[in-house]
Amino acid sequence: MEEYKKILNRRRLALVTFVLFSSIVLLFNQLYLEETITNPTVHGFQFGLLVGLEGIAIFMVIKITRTLMDERKIQLMYNAEHDERKVYIKAKAGQPMVLILSSILLFAAIIAGYYNTTVFFTLVGVVYFQLTVTVVIKMIYLKKM
């Protein structure tokens, strides 16, 4: 269990680093790039995405911190994370790879949005479609197995 505690501490450190980095990016965007942004749609999407991801990261930091205080909660989190059925369903639904591809597509959408709004909306639509299909497949497998 000590090894899992180290893993949780590394996760917490990575999440805190992400929160600090994204806060700096948001502050920089609001203070310095406001006048130079050519496409307010992309700027708004970027702002909303970063704020949403920050909120999720803060929630996860709090959850991990509370878990590390109680040995029983650590065991429960470990068991939930390594549940063979859930791991199999996630793999069957293609979740690990879809999350990576969706992240790459979102990054590409933000970059492309500064040049062409149509490409931006198309890539964001593809990401939403990918994630929706993955969730539907996961729900089907959860009910089926």
Rank of each mutant, 00 (worst) to 15 (best):
R11W: 15
R66M: 11
P96R: 02
L26K: 02
T65C: 03
V119D: 02
T122D: 09
V98A: 13
S22P: 09
I62F: 08
L15S: 04
I137E: 14
F47E: 11
N9K: 14
F21H: 02
E84W: 05
R10I: 01
S22A: 05
Q30C: 02
R85G: 04
L68C: 02
A57S: 14
V126T: 14
E71D: 11
S103L: 07
T17N: 05
D83F: 02
L20V: 08
A14S: 10
M139W: 15
D83Y: 04
I74P: 00
E81D: 13
Y141D: 07
S23W: 10
M145Y: 15
V135P: 11
L49H: 06
V133Y: 15
R85E: 09
I37V: 08
H82V: 02
D70M: 01
Q30K: 06
D70E: 12
P96I: 00
L131C: 08
A93F: 07
K63V: 04
I100H: 15
H82R: 11
I24H: 01
K86Y: 11
Y115C: 00
G48K: 05
V127A: 01
F59Y: 15
T38S: 10
S102A: 12
A91V: 08
G52L: 04
T134K: 07
I111K: 12
I104S: 10
K92L: 07
L101I: 08
V133L: 11
K143V: 06
I89F: 08
G55R: 09
S22M: 05
T67K: 05
R66K: 12
Y128V: 00
K92M: 08
L123P: 00
M145T: 12
R66Q: 10
A57P: 06
S102C: 10
L27G: 09
I111E: 15
L13S: 07
R12H: 01
T122P: 00
K144F: 14
Q30N: 07
E2D: 10
A109S: 09
L123Q: 01
S22Y: 13
F59M: 05
T118E: 09
D83L: 00
V51N: 01
A14N: 12
V135F: 15
L50D: 03
L53R: 01
A93P: 11
V61E: 03
R66T: 08
T132Y: 14
